[in-house]
Amino acid sequence: MQEHKYTMASECFHRGQIDRAIDLLRELLAEEPNSADCHGLLAGCLLEKKRLYAAEYELAIALNLEPQNALFYVLQARINLLRNKTKSALESCDEALQLEPEYLDAHLLKSDVYLVFNKYDEAKACIDIAANLQPGSVTVAHYYGEYFFAKGDIKTAEKYAVDSLSIDPQDEAANILMGKIKLRQGNLKEAEYHATFVIIQNPDSNSALRLFCDIKMRRNIILGGWWRFNAWMASLSNVQSSVVLISGYLVFMLAAQIFEDFEYLTVSSLISFAWIGLVIYSWVGIPMYYKRLRKELERFSFNPEF
């Protein structure tokens, strides 16, 4: 029964039903609190939800229970990379590779870390090892593309992006890479096409939304700013939104008080109105953003003659 539940949770995770996977894993852990696999998978789920601290906590338990599991170190490396702890990320990758020298993900993640350091040769060496381990893989082709993109060799990056798309035209990372390349080349229409293609498939894809906002910014900086602000607001959880609003309230009140003390009463009242405006916007802005986004996602349109 427990094994079945774990398999279900794992399938949910791979299908992108992260919340369901988290629920199943929490139920499982209530019955069997010392299951390293459950803690590890839960850490993976939380990582997908960008709940880094919670993921780190679960991963620490998993590693404590099973310190010889290379996957846990790769997860640790991903968390560290997202928290900009690049050195620790590199150490975690090395740890994983010590346990499993042919671990593809660990090599590719290591290349990611090297790219952050701008250590291009080391990054390429890692991707080369991965390419030997799994030739013809869409992920490896995409990593080569990312590597050349980071180096500024857009033509070669495009070649690899096309390669990865020819292996799997629906691959999320490959489409985002192609979008970034097209944006760099100034082909905004194509870039937008790839970004929206990913958003249609996976509305939770932060990278695709970021690319989409970058494209909007390139077209119009004010409108782009609006997109970016709303995308950021929409990505916040309920708790995060409350924290933002409370912090905003404090900042606005403090500013209004200061201006009032210095007898800039007009500015002070303007700030108060701005605060009210922000609160109202936080109610109407997000639905407006989603409505607009839905319209933007209707990418394919027919000629009026058809």
Partner: peptide
């Protein structure tokens, strides 16, 4: 049909 055509476009172009 538009969703299908959007996906098919990627296959037609790259695969």
């Amino acid at each position: 049909t538009t969703e299908w055509l959007t996906t098919a476009r990627n296959y037609a172009r790259y695969a």
